[in-house]
Amino acid sequence: MENKIRGKKIRVLIAKPGLDGHDKGAKIVALALRDAGMEVIYSGLHQTLEQIIHTATQEAVDIIGLSIMSGAHLPICEKLIVMMEKAGLSDINLVVGGVIPFQDIPGLKEMGVSAVFPGGTSFEEIVHGMKDLFKK
């Protein structure tokens, strides 16, 4: 997993944790990322955090993208980041999209979330935001 970008493909896991009812947004974002040349592993609805960790490990992704609209983004991210550390996945970037109130963004970033794309973010901003993670 020591790759950075160098013309290689960015692999992204798109997952929806918890009990959100639909995944239209996540699917559309997945399409936009595909069109930007990324390989998107789409794992769909109702993912437990254990499943997300397991998938990210097996699929060797660079980014985990969570779509959260349930309002539970703070506890979910907090827990996932701890689990990622335990599983040795700290080098994976965690990004979050969905219904995220702006006042929560600083808190998420402090936890270790690499980028937040709240509702209303354009595809371009998401794609650039993700690619920028590898420019450092």
Binding site: L31, M38, V40, I41, Y42, G44, E50, E59
Partner: peptide, 28 residues
């Protein structure tokens, strides 16, 4: 995709029954 070089890998979506079984390894 022949156009963008990207891909959506969705097979795993249908193999969720084993998402946490240690003796099952799924790679897209």
């Amino acid at each position: 995709s022949p156009y963008s070089g990207g891909a959506i890998l969705g097979d795993r979506l249908r193999m969720q029954d084993h998402a946490t079984d240690e003796k099952v390894f799924i790679r897209s």
